[in-house]
Design a protein around this nucleic acid. Structure first.
Lengths: 186, 186
DNA sequence: TTGGAAACTTACTTATTAGTAAGTATTTTT
DNA sequence: AAAAATACTTACTAATAAGTAAGTTTCCAA
């Protein structure tokens, strides 16, 4: 694959996570990469193509992470911990996550980008639900709510707290994440 | 106050809650109101002015609601319930809340709009923290986390779940909100 | 009844946006 | 060595954005 193509996706993702989908332009990317506007259109004819590719890349990355954790024999605690660590990293880098950034702009997105975003979100929530369910069975976790609801709650807590910490600068993100984990202890 | 001015604010707020700040234009407003583009600029010279006014209106509305609940003698349960009901209504109307909509676009906002958004967010979180604290003392609520953390968690759950339900259409918002309240019962 | 403020419209400007058509240089394949 | 694919640039177009200056209508107060 082309290096330029990959750098466009990388830069585009960063722009979505910091400025938002509707606030970044092809000019932002081309200037940063030292190429012309039309060169970005060469790889991604429309902005919708780029958006879709960025979400697809995120899906792939997430699936790879799951595979990786399975092959390493991570238990439910470790898997949840690894997932939360992604968000702690994003917080450190002052970035949102792709779902939290594209979610509010959902209605302005192209249909294809929308369905990829739906796929990504459902993938995360269903994975989290499974982890919570099997972790509860094994006695790792304790909670009374429906596992699906609990998964949505944990996920939305992580997503929105990144947004909140952008507004409230002194939000203690780590202790906030610890509280999520503490709340699951038997 | 002018009716047109108020309708511009109302429409602008709706546009922010559905399309996002960077996706709506003065044209969207003027067309809907049957006036010209320049008429919107007459009331709000810049888009930043409009954005700031919209957030200020939200702050006022929230403060009025708190006052109203106090004068009606609402206890902590009823106050939290009323707060959650706002989000259930937003969900029904397929809207986000102002914090969840402007939060991701924070870095692209004017400084004045930013500081009003900070004010609004801190107002909500500190109010929620107080409610949780005094409600816990009176035995209405039970939780182990720090009240500030718990307040942030509840708030971000509400904010992000509106975003999530835009992506995952069959998310059961009401039972999700009930789970938040159940989790607080002693 | 006249002066002036309020509430606009007309008619623009400037900047930026996504997107394209046609051309060029470089590398790869045949 | 010729053909063709790759990776761009040049040079645009058309649309839309925010914003403004100057003029017009309407209404109210002195």
């Amino acid at each position: 694959m082309s290096v330029t193509r990959e750098r466009i996706i990388e830069l585009g993702e960063n722009l979505i996570l910091t400025k938002g989908y509707n606030a970044f332009s092809y000019q932002d990317i081309s200037t940063e990469l030292g190429i012309k506007n039309a060169a970005v259109h060469y790889y991604f004819p429309t902005k919708a193509n780029l958006g879709t590719s960025i979400v697809k890349t995120n899906i792939l990355r997430f699936e790879e992470m799951i595979d990786n954790m399975h092959s390493r024999g991570f238990d439910e605690w470790k898997q949840l911990d690894a997932f939360i660590k992604i968000y702690i990293k994003s917080h450190r880098e002052q970035k949102l996550c792709i779902v939290g950034s594209l979610g509010p702009d959902f209605d302005t997105l192209n249909e294809t980008t929308q369905s990829e975003l739906v796929k990504m979100t459902e993938l995360i929530v269903s994975w989290l639900t499974e982890i919570l369910n099997s972790g509860k069975e094994k006695g790792y976790f304790a909670f009374n709510e429906d596992a699906g609801n609990k998964a949505s709650m944990i996920f939305s807590s992580l997503v929105a707290s990144l947004q909140l910490s952008r507004i409230i600068k002194n939000l203690d993100y780590k202790s906030y994440c610890q509280a999520i984990q503490e709340g699951l202890k038997p």
